[in-house]
């Protein structure tokens, strides 16, 4: 009796693990396990939705590959790639020279301007000198953090880093921060929420620095995976040609006209 009960438990555990461990050999797309609307977030039924998720599905359909979405912590997403827990970083990661030292990227699949938002009471002038002594929030290990450290940190602003963009937005709404810097379209989505409308407004675009702010968002890849890179690039180019990018963007009215996507030849 005891033995059978133990077996039943073991079987249940094995079944549990089987459901938790889907079939192998799919292409694993790593997405940061955090809400980053409108690009990627989990809806109330537990499925991932957003512009970037739609694009992922379109790319996979184009390549005729089975893809699997894997949730990873943003601050561990590059290690997750290099240690082969995932095959592609598909999480609004900007292509920068610094990251290229460690990993490779597909071609750009979207690009948005970099903006600062802040409390409605604050100044609209956002030059570094003006923000001396202010507290600016940013997601850790993003191009924006590097940018803020270089221009605003050195000018006397305090930079606070957050594990997720959502936490930084929340602290801005709480009044703990004066400003937040991030991708224009992600912050635009935040400003349209009830929380965002109540507290904050767009302050403007920061002065460009291509070296830090990079050349847009691409899929992160291991350097040796050139075959995957070529396949993904071909799929992105094909989707650009067929107008799929515009089709996906049309589903997100907030994004229309706010972002640059690859143009078909």
């Amino acid at each position: 009796m005891k033995l059978t009960r133990r077996f039943a438990l073991a079987a249940a555990a094995a079944a549990m693990m089987a459901t938790a461990a889907p079939a192998m050999a799919d292409l694993k797309f790593g997405v940061a396990a955090e809400p980053y609307p409108p690009f990627s977030s989990k809806d109330a039924s537990g499925t991932w939705v957003g512009w970037e998720i739609d694009l992922m599905n379109a790319v996979c359909a184009q390549m005729n590959e089975k893809c699997e979405l894997v949730e990873v912590a943003w601050d561990g997403i590059i290690p997750a790639l290099t240690s082969k827990q995932i095959d592609v970083i598909w999480s609004s990661m900007s292509i920068t020279a610094k990251r290229k030292e460690t990993i490779d990227f597909t071609n750009m699949y979207y690009n948005t301007p970099t903006v600062l938002i802040g409390a409605k009471t604050g100044d609209l002038d956002i030059t570094p000198a003006k923000l001396k002594g202010k507290v600016i929030g940013v997601q850790v290990s993003t191009i924006h953090e590097a940018y803020l450290q270089k221009y605003y940190g050195s000018a006397g602003a305090e930079i606070k880093t957050y594990a997720t963009q959502d936490e930084a937005n929340n602290d801005l709404a709480a009044g703990r921060l004066d400003y937040v810097q991030a991708d224009g379209s992600a912050l635009d989505a935040f400003l349209k929420t009830e929380q965002g409308t109540a507290c904050c407004e767009l302050k403007g675009q920061v002065a460009d620095d291509p070296e830090i702010l990079g050349e847009g968002v691409g899929g992160g890849l291991r350097k040796e995976d050139t075959a995957i890179k070529e396949k993904l690039n071909a799929a992105i180019a094909e989707l650009a040609k067929s107008g799929k990018f515009e089709e996906i963007t049309a589903k997100y009215p907030d994004l229309v006209g706010k972002m640059i996507t690859p143009k078909g030849m």
């Binding site: 396990a33 809400p35 989990k42 109330a44 912590a73 959502d166 929340n170």
Partner: peptide
């Protein structure tokens, strides 16, 4: 903290989505 969606991270995601921390 390592991004595995167990109860605490699921809570954080739900809280972040709904702003009902």
């Amino acid at each position: 903290v390592v991004g595995y969606t167990e109860l605490t991270l699921a809570t954080k995601q739900a809280a972040g989505n709904t702003k009902m921390y």
